[in-house]
Design a binder for these strands. Structure first.
Lengths: 339, 339
DNA sequence: GATTTTAATTAAACAGATTCAACAACCGGA
DNA sequence: TCCGGTTGTTGAATCTGTTTAATTAAAATC
């Protein structure tokens, strides 16, 4: 592989200066058309590779954007990522992706790496317990941050997420409307703002319908299929015999339905189940899952857009952007069977 | 945010040269212990951020490794990625992730970006139709490549994947052993080496059992749940009435089972279904899916290891590494019911 | 006390692009 | 012929660390 081809290689081979070559390759109007064409042709034939780190050292713009979420394997985040990806791609930004698995330390490492690489910005779904200081670290060093799906208190950073309390209330009301009175809430934690909002939405909806809230009906747990699957045992052995379940998300709901089916009951008929997020998978689950659309694609798209705008110099004054969830009614819920 | 803190800021504040500071921060034995401690302390208190692009400009080692697969949302790749991530993480490498969605062009763009950023290496599951030249582009410019899950002909690049023909034969033989004679093969394409290998494995197993191969029993299609779900219609309306299906992967199998259930039949009893990959999800599907373990975690781990070793200077002579698949028998397959 | 070793520090070149003030060449007009 | 105005090109500084040969200071040896 001979010597590395750089600007000066091209410049020398054509008897020009590196300044001209640099300008020509970036389509500067300062360079004569004929010169530009010759330079570009030469660059191609020499197999020139643009050295971005040299350039960004000078310009302090790297074209790199960091994205960090709890777990990219989780379809909920994956759908957000997909939207972010397509928006960033359109704008020729490279993105560096990472999971933090809710480790604040791993997340901080990621931010530091990004700072070292001279990232232009970061989009994150913050780890549980993220201190405002970690976001300040980024912002203070010229790395603007945008949050998705979760909030952090103590610092004003643009945040895009669904209106959780409202969304869970939609699901709960739907079940109440079908005649259910003993409704469990499955999965998730109460340690995040999301968790508290969702529980609150559930509680408020029950109260409004004059149904007593029984904390035993709350079964926290992992937000995964496995979590829902395992929760089925607890769920089915409760004294109060719930006839319906509001699940933290679609994964938990699908897992729970599998668990219910494994126990010989028919989900959607014997037990009504609602999900949350409206993943692609919800529509093809058996039975098709009644769930709440949570606008992942919207969230991702808007977050990416917001970051790009910020980098372009625009200055938004609003911080919290709540997407209004919508009900998607399918076959996993049905009217309460009078006994 | 005041002025940016750089090596010279620290150097001046302590009355030292940047050379000393640079050496001290990297724990060079050339610097006196007491000096090193003072420098590190000062760096911390000034909030110094190491500028990797400046450094890598000089050292031509960026600590960046690229990973590109068909689709990170697909659990099969996600499981490989998880393993790659943990291996690279342990070795403090940053990785840049991308989907190529089987677009050779998108994949080439990714390689170019990585070259521009001075990436140290790339792990890829090549897009369908990847020309050897694209891999040569990487290798020739000092970007060693490692392939996972798929092969590319015409160039010798270390490749880690499962033994597809063998694995599908396992599944097919399992069904034959249960008495099935009319066995369909659902999903996937014949345009990849993987596709051809898998079809071959299926055909060979049938031939060995003296079962006639009927090409109408081959239903190619998307390698997704949706794909399997939609294939159910075709599958159930076939003239030959297959009693079992070998699916391209677990996703297709789960989709197919959902489709079968939707049509009122019981997957695992009326129709036997095998998956492929043994995703985490396979065990909790309803019915639990009989499938073929394909060693995603192994593949990912080994690939990352191979790249790290290569970067460390070791020289392996073997290129193709095939992982031997294993059968995982669960409830989605049962003996053929004599009519 | 003079000389040799060893240890600690540094000056300066370097990596590869960007940028801007300065300069050259050429134009038409006076 | 001289001049102001364009258009095109370039020299040199700059961005921030790394590295090596050279220098200085201190310690060891005779």
């Amino acid at each position: 592989m001979g010597q590395k081809v750089k600007l000066s290689t091209i410049a020398e081979s054509l008897g020009l200066s590196t300044a001209t070559v640099s300008l020509a390759l970036r389509d500067s109007p300062l360079v004569a058309d004929s010169t530009r064409d010759r330079i570009k042709e030469q660059a191609r034939s020499l197999g020139y590779i643009y050295n971005r780190r040299a350039a960004s050292l000078r310009t302090s713009r790297s074209g790199i954007i960091g994205v960090v979420v709890h777990d990219i394997m989780n379809p909920f985040y994956a759908e957000i990522l997909r939207a972010i990806e397509s928006e960033l791609d359109r704008n020729r930004q490279t993105f560096i992706l990472s999971n933090h698995y809710d480790s604040v330390e791993k997340q901080r490492n990621f931010i530091e790496t990004l700072l070292q690489l001279g990232g232009d910005g970061v989009i994150m779904s913050p780890a549980i317990g993220t201190p405002a200081a970690d976001l300040a670290l980024a912002e203070d060093n010229g790395l603007p941050a945008i949050l998705v799906a979760r909030s952090v208190t103590g610092i004003d950073v643009p945040t895009f997420r669904g209106d959780d309390a409202y969304g869970i209330a939609l699901a709960t009301n739907h079940l109440i409307g079908l005649g259910h009175r003993t409704i469990a809430m499955i999965g998730g934690t109460d340690q995040t703002s999301t968790g508290r909002d969702r529980y609150q939405g559930y509680v408020d909806a029950l109260r409004k319908a004059q149904i007593e809230v029984d904390s035993e009906l709350r079964i926290p747990g992992p937000r995964t299929k496995q979590g829902g699957f395992e929760a089925a045992v607890t769920f089915l052995s409760m004294r109060q015999k719930p006839t319906a379940a509001v699940c933290w998300n679609d994964l938990v709901a699908i897992g729970l339905m599998n668990g219910i089916a494994r126990a010989g009951l028919i989900p959607g008929k014997d037990i009504s189940v609602t999900g949350y997020d409206d993943l692609e998978e919800a529509a093809i689950a058996t039975p098709a899952l009644t769930t709440v659309w949570n606008g992942q694609a919207e969230v991702g798209r808007m977050a990416a857009r917001a970051l790009l705008d910020k980098l372009a110099g625009s200055h938004a004054e609003d911080y919290l952007h709540l997407i209004k969830p919508e009900m998607r009614i399918r076959q996993s819920t049905s009217p309460h069977k009078a006994i």
